[in-house]
């Protein structure tokens, strides 16, 4: 196989990147609206996040440090998340050629988190540094559940590629893995009660606190995009039947976006509206218990595969 053969894959990936970039703020708007409704407020219009981003992009930028990490952090973060979006399936269709599999996908998400934490430390501010330190610990709580519940699919299909994961057979272990994933979704998207890194009321935005203007816009956009990716991944991998009967890809993509919207509003929006923030150690305990359940599921899946051979 030669590199030019990957050109169509790259083209499709860029299309996915742009789609995620455009659609992601809509999720945030819908969640805010629902939260307002639950709290008996009228709330901002659903397109408010787009207005926020546009305003931030034109706003003055305040530099607290010359560190290149802070200068380049937000674009790198957004780029890592977008490339991850380019690798993952959309509308039930995985990329034809595997330029990066599940491991690369997780690695790119980790790069985004690491960059956020590094920016926090680079500003030197106590709030940012504390937020950055929490970001790493929050990863320790969330990432194992994410990876292991996806590995349950990988073990069943014997493949790390997204095409393989999509083709994984549905079974009881898949359902347990799906439950673990959905119970941890709030941790992945770092919303209340797991908004420990940003924690507006105690850390005034954590690693984001010293960002402003276009940098803050990119950082916010990254957070919105992450939310889309984690929710869409659940729809794609654990509920593939919702998309597979739609033959025509544009339909499937629209259905995909609508389902993500529904999932985010119903799960993320409701959970964040009715819960207070957890402490870091409570979050870690929650994450580790879920990871424990997911690991048992993983071993069961491996044993099932082993017996089935």
């Amino acid at each position: 196989m030669t590199l030019p053969e990957f050109l169509p894959t790259i083209g499709i990936a860029i299309g996915k990147m742009l789609l995620v970039l455009l659609v992601a703020p809509l999720l945030e708007g819908a969640i805010r609206k629902l939260r307002a409704v639950i709290q008996s407020r009228k709330g901002p219009p659903i397109y408010q996040p787009y207005l926020d981003l546009m305003k931030l992009l034109a706003k003055e930028e305040l530099h607290v440090t010359d560190s290149p990490i802070v200068a380049w952090g937000p674009p790198v973060m957004l780029a890592a998340i977008l490339v991850a979006a380019g690798l993952m399936p959309i509308g039930g269709q995985a990329p034809a050629l595997t330029a990066g599999d599940l491991v690369v996908f997780i690695g790119l998400l980790a790069l985004a988190n690491l960059t956020l934490a590094a920016m926090g430390f680079a500003t030197g501010s106590a709030f940012s540094s504390l937020g950055a330190s929490r970001e790493i610990m929050a990863m320790l709580a969330a990432e194992p559940v994410l990876f292991i519940s996806l590995l349950v699919l990988a073990v069943q299909s014997g493949s790390m590629t997204f095409a393989g994961l999509l083709a994984a057979p549905m079974g009881i272990v898949t359902i347990v893995a799906a439950i673990a994933y959905i119970l941890a979704l709030q941790m992945y998207v770092a919303k209340v009660p797991f908004d420990i890194t940003e924690a507006e009321t105690e850390l005034i935005g954590g690693p984001l606190s010293e960002l402003s203007g276009p940098k803050l816009a990119l950082a916010q956009w990254t957070i919105y995009a992450k939310q889309f990716i984690y929710s869409s991944l659940f729809i794609q991998l654990f509920m593939p039947w919702t998309l597979s009967y739609l033959g025509w890809l544009p339909f499937a993509i629209v259905a995909n976006v609508l389902l993500v919207l529904l999932l985010d509003v119903l799960v993320v929006g409701v959970v964040m509206s009715v819960n207070p923030r957890l402490r870091l150690d409570q979050a870690l305990r929650y994450g580790m218990s879920l990871a424990g359940v997911a690991s048992v599921t993983l071993i069961v899946a491996a044993v099932v595969q082993f017996v089935g051979r």
């Binding site: 590199l3 990957f6 894959t9 595997t98 330029a99 990066g100 493949s159 790390m160 590629t161």
Partner: peptide, 11 residues
């Protein structure tokens, strides 16, 4: 059957 792939140049 490709079961895993990483092409850094493309990434």
């Amino acid at each position: 059957a490709v079961i895993g792939g990483f092409v850094p140049a493309v990434i």
